[in-house]
Design a protein around this nucleic acid. Structure first.
Lengths: 186, 186
DNA sequence: AATTTTACTTGACAATTGTCAATAAATTAT
DNA sequence: ATAATTTATTGACAATTGTCAAGTAAAATT
């Protein structure tokens, strides 16, 4: 999970000056349900921390719509390929519910990192955290069966099954909607 | 790939002082073929940059030996869960050939990061790079067929097929040795 | 070099998951 | 509320990949 920011509020609480610097580059933004926040083929300049609602990252492969990331409250979302490499993205970002986010631009974030080693350090810790998350997901995908992947996700992110269309969960788990339906039907 | 260090030698060349600081914490070490450099259940204190040879990270799942990372010359290897989180690792690291590495301890690396924002910055960039690599691998595993995953690896790391046992490549691709043999037999 | 061990290949068959089609249910639009 | 559209479920069948077993090849050990 990247409830990392939540866990690290102490970082800001201990440092009113840093909290202020951070506040300055963050803007509260809202998107309606179904809104495409970012489109494939464009450079993604923003990172979002969700304060309310749920969103997904997806892309197309042979006409199929593949979800590769979900984010809900306290989690972050961006078109990571583009945000990091500053190139055109293969990903879309979609609001799956009405969304309220903290928006942070890449350039402001880089300035923040440059302005203070403490932020640079924080950025590195953040990347470490999401790297570990990704390693776990890869291990899951690498050798669990469809049913096991379903059960793992049910445990890690149970709210998805209440709030998100099954077809998105199916593609995230790398199975067809039919197979997911059969797994759920026990 | 994490030929990242190679590409970033300019970082050190431009900064003789930084290069010197880096040199100080690096030690050249050798391991013979088949040597288990790190064992599951222990905390991994070292990061290795390979200068000669090839190594793999693996773990056990239900008695099956699963390879989840390969590294060759100019690439880095560690038990990433443990190195980042400072907890017992699920992974083993094994030398698949006689190995010569640059060894860097976690504590020295952290000191280096703290000593200079430039290093902290470099650490963040390094993590960004390996994060992107991992995202690509996840995308591959998420929806390519066994044959496509084979072809992708053949393109990205052709030397593996000359230097590494097929069974390791098979588990890395999440297929059985039998299936890999059939794919190769065209 | 010979022996032992380990790895690779091939075949027959089984299991898992996917595809296609039809229907039911749910959501969205009118 | 009703109609239209999208999504989810279910069945029949097909395709991909896995399992098990046997034999061959290669590598490691003596």
């Amino acid at each position: 999970m990247d409830t990392f920011f939540e866990q690290n509020t102490s970082f800001f609480l201990d440092n009113p000056k840093l909290a202020e610097d951070f506040q300055k580059i963050v803007s509260v933004t809202k998107f309606p349900k179904h809104f495409i926040i970012h489109e494939s083929g464009k450079v993604c300049d923003d990172l979002y921390i969700i304060t309310s609602g749920i969103a997904r990252v997806f892309y197309y492969r042979e006409d199929k719509n593949i979800t590769c990331h979900f984010a809900a409250e306290q989690e972050s979302i961006t078109a990571i390929d583009s945000f990091i490499q500053r190139k055109k993205s293969k990903y879309y970002i979609e609001a799956l519910e009405d969304l309220e986010v903290l928006k942070i631009s890449h350039s402001d974030l880089e300035k923040l990192f440059t302005s203070s080693p403490k932020f640079e350090h924080f950025g590195r810790l953040f990347l470490q955290q999401i790297y570990i998350d990704l390693v776990e997901r890869l291990d899951d995908l690498q050798l669990k069966t469809a049913k096991e992947r379903y059960e793992t996700l049910l445990e890690k992110k149970p709210y998805l099954f209440q709030r998100v269309a099954s077809k998105h969960i199916a593609s995230y788990l790398n199975i067809t909607p039919e197979t997911l339906s059969r797994i759920r039907g026990k």
